[in-house]
Amino acid sequence: MSITVRKSEPADRAAILALMQASTGEHLTPEQRAEQGFVQGVMDEETLTRFMNGPGVFLAEEDGELAGFAMTAEPSPAAGGPVQGTVDAVTAEVPAGTKFFLYGPVAVDARFQGRGVLTKLLTALSRELAGRYALGALFVEESNAKSLAVHRHYGMTEAARFAVGERWYVVFTFEPATFAERTD
Rank of each mutant, 00 (worst) to 15 (best):
V108W: 13
L121M: 00
N144I: 01
R115V: 13
A134N: 05
E46C: 01
E166Y: 00
N53C: 03
F58Q: 09
M43R: 03
F179W: 11
T47Q: 12
G165R: 12
I16M: 00
A89T: 09
E128K: 06
K99E: 14
G131V: 02
V108Y: 13
H151C: 07
S143R: 10
E61P: 03
A107F: 06
E141A: 00
S143V: 15
I16V: 11
A149P: 05
A15S: 03
L48V: 14
S8W: 09
M1P: 08
V170S: 09
G80E: 11
I16N: 04
S126M: 03
R161W: 07
K99N: 08
D109G: 02
E142N: 04
T24H: 04
A137D: 02
R6W: 14
I3P: 00
F58I: 12
A92I: 05
T178Q: 01
Q40I: 09
A18D: 13
R33I: 09
D88G: 03
E45L: 02
P75A: 01
E175V: 09
A60W: 14
A160L: 09
L135D: 05
L129Q: 15
R127Y: 03
G85E: 08
A70N: 15
L122C: 00
P55K: 05
E128H: 00
V39M: 11
G37F: 15
R167E: 12
E62Q: 10
Y154A: 07
S143E: 14
R111N: 13
Y103F: 07
E74Q: 08
R132N: 15
A70H: 14
R111F: 06
T86L: 12
V140M: 03
K99M: 12
A11P: 04
E142I: 08
M1H: 11
G155N: 06
L66T: 03
L66F: 00
A11V: 07
M71E: 13
P77N: 05
R13Y: 00
S23R: 13
Q21T: 13
R167I: 09
A130C: 09
S76Y: 07
A60P: 10
W168R: 10
F139Q: 12
V94N: 07
K7H: 08
A149S: 07
F100M: 12
N144W: 01
Q21D: 11
E46W: 01
E61G: 06
Q40D: 14
F172M: 05
A70T: 13
G131L: 12
L28A: 08
V87W: 05
V83C: 06
V5F: 15
E93R: 04
S143A: 14
F139C: 05
A137N: 07
S143K: 14
T123Y: 08
G37S: 12
T4R: 07
A180N: 04
A107P: 00
K99L: 13
L148S: 07
K146T: 05
A163H: 12
R115K: 15
F100T: 15
I3F: 02
P30E: 13
E62I: 01
A159P: 13
S8N: 10
V170R: 12
N53A: 06
G131T: 09
A89G: 01
P176Y: 00
T4I: 12
E166A: 00
D109Y: 03
Y154V: 06
M20S: 08
G81A: 10
F179L: 11
A60Q: 08
R33D: 15
L138Q: 09
A137G: 03
G136V: 15
M71N: 04
E45Q: 05
A124S: 09
L28W: 13
T47N: 10
